[in-house]
Computed example of a mutant assay.
Amino acid sequence: MGTSHAKRLFNREIEGAILAAVCDVREDRMVKAREEFGDRVKRFLTIDEFFADADIDGVIIATPHYDHPTLAIRSFEKGWHVLCEKPAGVYTKNVRLMNEAAAKSGKVFSMMFNQRTNPLYQKMRELIQSGELGEIKRTNWIITDWYRAQSYYDSGGWRATWEGEGGGVMLNQSPHQLDLWQWITGMMPTRIRSFCGFGKYHDIEVEDDVTAYVEYENGATGLFVTSTGEAPGTNRFEVAGDRGKLVIENGDLTFWRLRQSEREFNQTFKGGFGEPESWKIDIPVRGKNEQHLGILENWVDAILNGTELLAPGEEGIKSLAISNGVYLSSWLDDWVELPIDEDLYYEKLQEKIATSTFSKDTKKDVTLDVSGTH
């Protein structure tokens, strides 16, 4: 993703921003950067040199997950604006420190939650937040349409390990959906019970299959199902309320709208068998899904013009809190309350790292072409 963002900036696709410097600890990537960008873009092989000599206003962090908070904090201390790739980090304990550093700096901090630019999800959020759906009763998201072959996991020594990546499908592929889940509904779970398959479909030590059940403060329930081992996959998001049901699937938003609140019908209907009248409405959705370009433009506009952020960086902790809760529940084989015990989570994660017997070529790194994957 770092390569993709750098190319967009270099090609001047984002008005008001230019690519001034890149940093990568891999020499082959710096050779590639010189071939593509020439000497107009400064190149740094070490983080310390980058922070000492890069003449920039803002930084995009697109590194393995553990480094996100550390690099963001150093950037804020330098007085730089920050756009961070998902996830915000691996565990919420140090992401809180990142958020505190952002607040102290007063700089513009955004997360690369590019799915927030999708008009489908924006419209669904609008319908829910406006009260059109009524009180939420249930949420279901099955998102299994990002199949990954073993070669994907073999492409980097850090991938799919507790020490290098900190998790699997919940931390790598699912952050966008976890973010949308809470952003669209406006609700965070209060407790979670999850079941994870670790290395179920691949030769990896982290999870590639998850089923998580959640409960909300208002009594609503939710289900999140995800995997990188199913083909063909499914992407269906369903939210049921007392005024009907919203479904996003196959690029369409459908509203089964009740003429009468289900709760009201339940109390007043005297006919025994029967249900509220329902209208199937194909919701018109207008606008273009700008994805990464949209978030990049929004971040730059916020820096230059004070535009409101679509994906404030401080909100990155919310999706991470859900994934941390999923892991902890699976590790403990029990329910966990949110917010989780952050010290316990960190302790259990360190145990996973310390007791790992998984062997992988940690020197192997291949830069994959992400075009067509999002």
Rank of each mutant, 00 (worst) to 15 (best):
M1P: 07
G2P: 06
T3E: 12
T3Q: 10
S4P: 00
R8Q: 15
N11W: 00
N11P: 00
E13F: 01
E13K: 13
E15C: 04
V22P: 11
V22N: 08
E27A: 12
D28T: 10
R29S: 04
V31K: 07
V31G: 06
A33C: 10
R34N: 12
F37K: 01
F37S: 06
E49Q: 13
F51I: 10
D57S: 08
D57M: 01
P64G: 01
D67T: 06
P69Y: 02
A72P: 08
E77M: 05
G79I: 08
G79N: 09
L83W: 03
A88W: 00
T92E: 06
V95Q: 09
V95M: 12
V95A: 06
L97F: 00
N99Q: 05
E100P: 00
A102I: 11
A103W: 07
A103F: 11
V108T: 13
F109P: 08
F109H: 10
M111D: 07
F113L: 09
F113T: 02
P119F: 04
E126N: 12
G131W: 05
G131M: 08
G134T: 14
E135H: 04
R138A: 10
W141C: 14
W141K: 07
I142V: 15
A149E: 14
G156L: 02
W158N: 09
W158T: 05
T161E: 03
L171Y: 05
N172I: 08
D179Q: 01
I184D: 03
G186F: 08
G186T: 10
M187I: 07
G199L: 02
Y201S: 11
I204N: 02
D209G: 03
A212M: 10
Y213C: 04
E215V: 13
A220D: 14
G222D: 07
L223Y: 06
V225W: 05
T228E: 07
G241Y: 03
G241P: 08
V247M: 14
D252R: 14
F255L: 12
W256D: 13
E262K: 15
Q267T: 13
K270A: 15
G271M: 05
F273S: 10
K280M: 10
P284H: 02
P284A: 08
R286F: 11
K288D: 15
N289M: 03
N289Q: 04
Q291L: 15
L293P: 00
G294E: 07
G294P: 09
L296G: 02
E297F: 01
W299L: 09
T307W: 00
E308W: 04
G313D: 03
E314F: 12
I317T: 05
I317C: 10
K318R: 15
Y327V: 06
W331H: 09
D333I: 04
D334M: 03
I340E: 00
E342V: 15
D343G: 01
Y345T: 03
K352H: 10
D365E: 14
D369A: 14
V370D: 04
